[in-house]
Amino acid sequence: MRLLNTAGGRVLCLAGTVDDAAVDSFLRRYGREPAPVDVVDAGSVTSLSMRGLELLLDHLDAAERAGRPVTLRRSLQVEQLLAGRGQPAR
């Protein structure tokens, strides 16, 4: 998990296994407040813990409250978790 500054804006990247240890490492590095992002790239996630899902949703919710459109790239695993929580496609 990383925050990247790209030519297309700030990107929250999640890849591989996003478990509680990965979330803890991300929070130590970047802090607890959701960062303003333009893209959430979760297209390479193979496994997502509930804390990982909460972190992803926190970033999406913060962007929505700020009126910022965010592109969400999602893997099948992320798609299934979002569908199970009643999250609309973004």
Rank of each mutant, 00 (worst) to 15 (best):
D38H: 15
R10L: 08
S47F: 15
E64D: 14
G8E: 13
F26G: 07
D19E: 12
F26N: 03
M50C: 11
T17H: 11
T46H: 06
R68W: 12
E33W: 01
A22M: 05
A15E: 15
D38L: 13
V18A: 06
D58K: 07
G8M: 08
S75P: 00
N5T: 13
A7Y: 07
L72G: 03
G43H: 02
G84T: 08
Q87Y: 12
G84V: 02
P34Q: 11
S49H: 09
R68F: 07
A42C: 00
T6L: 06
A66D: 14
L12Q: 11
A35R: 09
D20G: 04
A21I: 05
P36L: 14
R28W: 01
P36Q: 15
L72R: 04
G52F: 07
M50V: 14
L56C: 05
E54T: 06
L55M: 12
M1H: 11
A35V: 11
Q80I: 14
V37N: 00
E79Y: 07
A22G: 00
M50Y: 13
R74L: 11
R10F: 02
L3C: 03
L72H: 05
R74E: 08
S47P: 05
R90Y: 01
P69V: 09
V23G: 06
M1I: 04
G43A: 11
Q87V: 15
